[in-house]
Write a protein that binds this DNA or RNA. Sequence first.
DNA 1: TTGTAAGCGTTATCAG
DNA 2: CTGATAACGCTTACAA
Lengths: 349, 349
Amino acid sequence: MNVTIKDVASLANVAPSTVSRVIADSPRISEATKQKVKQAMEQLGYHPNLNARNLASQSTQAIGLVMPSSKDVGFQNPFFPTVLQGISEGAQEKNYALHMTTGKSEEEILHAVVQMVQGKRVDGIVLLSSKVEDQVISYLIERSFPFVLIGKPYKDIEEITHVDNDNIRAMKEATAYLIGLGHKQIGFIGGSLELIVTSDRQDGYKKALAEAGIEARSEYIIHQKFLREGGQQAVRELMQLEHPPTALVVADDFMALGVLNTLDELGIRVPDDISIVGFNNVLLAEMSRPPLTSVDINIFELGYQASKNLIQMIENSNEPTKRLIISHRLVERLSCSQPSVEKSDKSND
Amino acid sequence: MNVTIKDVASLANVAPSTVSRVIADSPRISEATKQKVKQAMEQLGYHPNLNARNLASQSTQAIGLVMPSSKDVGFQNPFFPTVLQGISEGAQEKNYALHMTTGKSEEEILHAVVQMVQGKRVDGIVLLSSKVEDQVISYLIERSFPFVLIGKPYKDIEEITHVDNDNIRAMKEATAYLIGLGHKQIGFIGGSLELIVTSDRQDGYKKALAEAGIEARSEYIIHQKFLREGGQQAVRELMQLEHPPTALVVADDFMALGVLNTLDELGIRVPDDISIVGFNNVLLAEMSRPPLTSVDINIFELGYQASKNLIQMIENSNEPTKRLIISHRLVERLSCSQPSVEKSDKSND
DNA sequence: TTGTAAGCGTTATCAG
DNA sequence: CTGATAACGCTTACAA
């Protein structure tokens, strides 16, 4: 069969345990035998059997990744590859492997997670989405299995290590930016309110208005479940109002693209007639017309810190619960300007 | 510790081996004990330890996923989440888990693959990219480890099971479509020629021209390494020609977006002044302005067939080498029209 | 510093 | 149809 630790041992004229120690780079082993063994490993092309190793040591060097349901909104979002890259890099630095699971439904996902955890396939888990009533989270907490959440937990905040942006502040700043430009009629377009990220951003929006002494109009706030059609639908609604907004904050760049789109169809020009601020600053933001002013939330870092901290939790069992806030910044491009002095002056073009 | 097969056995008053048989759903076991055991498992909340199982059975129920280098072009492409979804679904149907690996360099990736394979973490591998001289492929072939490639191999075609589109024909049809509209000056914009997919699509482009009796001009063919800036750069070059093309085939939608963008900046209107056909038909294609006519290559299916066939290879060791061609179709949207009768007539607008 | 031997939790081979 | 028992390949006390 395959070359095992015993083969290496006998070639190097030592005991299997010695070989094992060399692999683990145990300090109490003579340099001489260490070399001898290493050479034998080399010569035979030895690679440890990870299953055997995991079984004996009761630990895998792997972390599990739970992705949102594949039917879900998040999946098609360009957010996803980037965060994955961050997670992957954090894991690789510590030599952890990545195990992935998706599913078409909540049950499928939960099932897969249970398999991973009880089956001892991974030492910890990164969660890519936080739902309002999340069974996966409950399960992990109950078993006190190490995990970190990307995003903000709906409840048990103090007990869940998570990495997130300060979405409230970020959106507050974005809104304040528009206010600073002179806008007073500012609309908000966001995803489903069941996502914590949406409600946070909405809160930030309201706060900014409040601080500026602008009354928040409920008809200016629109939620849409789907990113693509949602943005389009939202614009139509807003533009039919008696006093349509002169500026829009959109809680997701992808959605903002839909917005831009529809605006164009309606013959409304950005930023001349209306200003737009997007969120996430994905690659798309640069490529849209006009290039989108957007809040960069540092997606890569979100992922990187998640896996990095998860590994700390795994390796040090009394690591405290943490809340990591990743910085953001507004990237100005060309989708915003001051409101036209007379906004009803769109008579002739 | 954790609940093991022995605990279940003693609770059910049977031998561990019997429990094992129940798990494997062995046919030669009485319905009575089967029920008894199942109930015991339920009662104790038993889940098999996968490491032990893998070790004993010399097989994991897992497939490995090798992604392109995270620095690579492909990573940010919306292609990626979709193909992942397909792979994931194919795996899940057969109850296979997914193990993922990326890396920042070729070496890192090869190293990770070797770990996966020799470490016996997976039973087979799906390759998401095919480079010209691919060490990973050589390694897998040499060890005759089951794998399937998404895309077309550079060499050893007959020995590598792969799932691909007929990119030559697809691009030929796309080009022929433009010719059918009356275009004669058609440019080609594609990615790096090191990618087989690019050269195939270029071949298709040339074939279509040849069949129509149109001479292929080398200055109409542009390759760019990066999708984003590349599209922009390419347009600038093409539009400076003495006789700029009246239509463009672009080998990737993402790139096409950059093209659209730059065209807009230059004040060239699509499709009035120039027609564009994209490739891949990602979500973006619908959302661009104008909506992009694009060749749908069925990305999900590419992934789905890959994992499905990989699993067949794993479970049936003398499964023949296959070449699977996924269908494509041109999706007409609004980015193409007939060439203006006098194409130099752009005097006043 | 190194060797011996007992697990780790399954599956697989033989008997019965 | 079911039960012992020997692998599977590695780690880790415990000795030496």
